[in-house]
Amino acid sequence: MNRLLTPPGELDLVRYPVDPRDPLRAWDAADEYAVRHLDGLDPAGAVLVFGDRWGALTTALAHLRPTLVTDSYLAREAAAENLRRAGAGDGVRLLTTRDAPPGVIDVLVVRVPKSLALLEDQLHRLAPAVHAGTVVVGTGMVKEIHTSTLELFERILGPTRTTLAERKARLILCTPDPALVRPANPWPRTHPLPGDVGVVSGLTVTNHAGVFSAERLDIGTRFLLQHLPARSGPEHVVDLGCGNGVVGLAAALGNPGAELTFVDESYQAVASAEATMAANAPATTARFVVGDGLAGQPPASVDLVLNNPPFHVHQSTGDATAWRMFTGARAALRPGGELWVVGNRHLGYHVKLRKLFGNCEVVAANPKFVILRAVRTGVLR
């Protein structure tokens, strides 16, 4: 059952992309708890929802004409679809974490994100719009709310407490203090790359809050950088799931004749990639796209796709995202085009790639990671 029971009635909610076979719900007990707590609220001014994962909170509060702020393209599309299904989209605004928030916020609802850094950055961005009378309610599962979470609310907004847990969910209740002296927002941050990663060794990359491995180069990407193919001449290269853009940067510096496209479903990630390229390869012809993988890329228009797919989505794990990335890459590649993937050995990506491409070669492997190469043959398997 994927229906969220709210005081006004049941909501039929979906995740995005919509897949009738998807067994995962588009809401959880934390969403339910917040909706019940906010029942009867009738604010005179602006309501803002931050971090809604699949649009459950935004849709349940649609009668209050809220503004949604999200870092996720998929969450934004899910919210739009769920509002459409509920016939409740009038007056609801859908913003990203890169947009300017409303000037005054009377109700702030925060779905606690997995990334503490993203929460820190967004509380800093929203704090100037919060006043003494603002109702601030955070919500999350017990395992998602830590002492460090509460300390962020205390340090940036004001006195904070939690409710008792209900069905393993908990609320965060914060009383804004206009006199609070807030520390400076530490995001975005930069860090230098190590000296053993080819053409990008020693360069500095930019990371906005919430981007994967924002403090240092992750070991999977490091392994891929050490084994990138030597290429030359005009070609179209895609850094798929680009994060801070370091892989695409390496491809651009390794082949100055290449045109680059950076794609991620995170607005923070794409902003990071754009800043990384501006600092290190400003002359490169590059596009920066927020979207669902290569869904919007014209067929047979790409020569090389470089990919380090995620296998965590919020608190769930699986290969659905990787599969969408692989199928999108196959459709976007020209005949003879290549997909290079780095992943944990235990994930078994070689099985999926052989099924999809009809071929898969191990380029390099170590005890933890494997780099795979699949070639678009033009024959559907």
Rank of each mutant, 00 (worst) to 15 (best):
V263R: 03
V135Q: 11
P176H: 01
Y349A: 11
L353N: 13
H227E: 07
A127K: 09
T147V: 15
G337A: 12
L5D: 09
V263G: 04
P298K: 00
A322P: 15
L94C: 02
G257W: 05
W323K: 05
E144N: 14
V205E: 05
F223A: 01
M1V: 12
A332M: 00
G348D: 10
L116T: 15
P128G: 10
A62V: 13
V289C: 11
E338W: 05
L108K: 08
T221E: 06
N244Q: 10
G133K: 04
I105S: 12
M1C: 09
A251W: 02
D239F: 01
H208N: 08
R36F: 09
V112Y: 11
G51P: 12
G293W: 00
L95S: 11
L157E: 15
G233L: 07
A75C: 04
I145T: 11
W187P: 12
G87A: 13
G103Y: 03
D292K: 00
L11M: 12
P298M: 00
D12V: 10
T317I: 14
A127H: 07
V211N: 04
D12F: 09
E144F: 05
L108W: 06
A169E: 10
K143F: 13
L193G: 10
M325S: 13
S148F: 07
A258V: 03
P186M: 07
V49C: 05
V47E: 06
L61I: 08
S301Q: 07
I219S: 07
S266P: 13
S72T: 04
L108P: 15
G89V: 07
I156D: 06
D12I: 04
N366D: 15
F223K: 00
V92K: 02
R330F: 02
H146I: 01
L38Y: 11
H346N: 14
V14M: 02
G348H: 08
F357E: 01
T284W: 00
R354L: 10
Q268S: 15
T317V: 15
L333M: 12
A278Y: 07
L304F: 01
T97K: 06
A117T: 13
L304G: 03
N2Q: 14
L116G: 15
V375G: 04
P102D: 01
P188Q: 02
A269D: 03
D28N: 14
D239L: 03
L203T: 13
D19R: 11
L118N: 08
R125N: 13
R182V: 13
L228A: 01
W187V: 08
W27T: 04
R170F: 05
V363P: 02
L61E: 09
V35S: 07
L193E: 10
A365Y: 01
R373W: 05
V135P: 01
L203G: 00
A60I: 02
P335I: 00
A165N: 04
L41C: 11
G296W: 00
L249C: 07
A364V: 03
V289K: 11
E120M: 03
P20E: 14
V35E: 08
A78M: 04
L64E: 15
G133S: 11
L4T: 12
Q315L: 12
D39R: 14
A44N: 05
V35N: 09
G241K: 11
E32S: 15
V238L: 01
P159K: 02
P256W: 03
G91P: 13
G202S: 09
S148T: 15
Y267V: 09
G248H: 06
P20T: 10
G254H: 06
L228D: 00
L57W: 05
C360M: 10
A26I: 10
D292E: 08
